[in-house]
């Protein structure tokens, strides 16, 4: 920062900022600490902050009590699967809209955006009915398809804003050299577009991973991701806070890490390029 401010002012500002940041972050920190406690310590009054008997047994217990591995695999399969199929559909679409725009491209983009506004509750009955009849309830293909459709508009949009920034001259040059459409995409566009595609993937994985309307309603056992595993703690028996915390840490850790790396892209993706 180029602004000149007195050191004392800077220290005071920093203190306030850190305090606020820690307050906002605190529930996550608390969950992390609790995940290493015994249940007795987790319920202790006054609460134990650091001086308790540290244990990792909750992390072992998560597997035997709620089958973490199954749910984690489902989360990964659903998020990655929805992502890959989404990209296969979206990359060609975004490419053509960015480089060969027609009169209708803008309307098309706006229309895609408007499908994202469709509330889950609005189409829930129909989807539930179709899935019930087609035996797609609680199936990975069924849920994965939904997650893909829910995120497709965001993926197309985000790719579009990235592709828009690629200089057209380079593509023209490739075309002059006789590159076919296919080669143009594979050898010229893709390498330049990889950073944009990567950011789009990250955002799409985050959104799919945390999606909880469709997964809670349509998945039960076989296709249930981590959101459902955590929801099973809503009516538990006995003491369960330490266990819930360990399960929660395991459920959010991967996405927290991915998320921290993709903050900037998050702004762009979730605002459809309106704020960069």
């Amino acid at each position: 920062m180029a602004r000149k401010v007195s050191t004392s002012r800077r220290v005071a500002m920093s203190a306030v900022a850190w305090l606020v940041a820690l307050l906002i972050f605190f529930p996550i920190l608390w969950m992390f600490l609790t995940s290493f406690k015994t249940e007795a310590d987790a319920y202790a009054v006054p609460p134990k902050f650091l001086f308790f008997h540290w244990t990792t047994e909750n992390y072992v217990e998560v597997q035997s009590r709620v089958d973490y591995v199954l749910h984690a695999i489902n989360s990964i399969v659903l998020a990655v699967g929805a992502n890959i199929f989404g990209l296969i559909l979206a990359i060609p679409a975004a490419w053509s809209m960015a480089f060969s725009p027609t009169k209708r491209t803008k309307d098309l983009l706006m229309w895609m955006l408007s499908t994202k506004m469709m509330p889950g509750a609005g189409v829930f009955m129909a989807i539930y009915f179709i899935y019930l009849r087609a035996h797609l309830l609680d199936s990975r293909w069924g849920i994965g398809f939904l997650l893909m459709m829910v995120n497709l508009p965001i993926i197309v949009w985000m790719l579009y804003t990235y592709f828009k920034e690629i200089p057209v001259d380079i593509l023209e040059a490739a075309r002059m050299d006789g590159a076919s459409l296919r080669n143009e995409i594979i050898y010229v566009l893709t390498p330049m577009a990889v950073p944009g595609i990567a950011s789009t993937m990250l955002l799409s994985v985050i959104l799919s991973w945390n999606e909880a309307f469709w997964t809670l309603n349509l998945a039960n056992v076989n296709a249930a991701p981590l959101t459902n595993m955590i929801a099973s703690f809503s009516s538990p028996e006995g003491d369960f806070w330490a266990l819930l915390s360990a399960a929660s840490v395991l459920a959010i850790a991967p996405i927290l890490i991915i998320g921290w790396f993709s903050q900037k892209q998050l702004v762009r993706g979730l605002t459809f390029g309106a704020v960069k």
């Binding site: 940041a21 529930p27 996550i28 969950m31 987790a42 955590i230 809503s234 959010i252 921290w260």
Partner: peptide, 20 residues
């Protein structure tokens, strides 16, 4: 630190807040 809660899945934030 500030952005972290946004990445927490809704079921986790709800249950951590409700209980702990």
């Amino acid at each position: 630190l500030v952005i972290a809660p946004f990445f927490v899945m809704p079921t986790v934030s709800a249950l951590i807040w409700k209980n702990m």
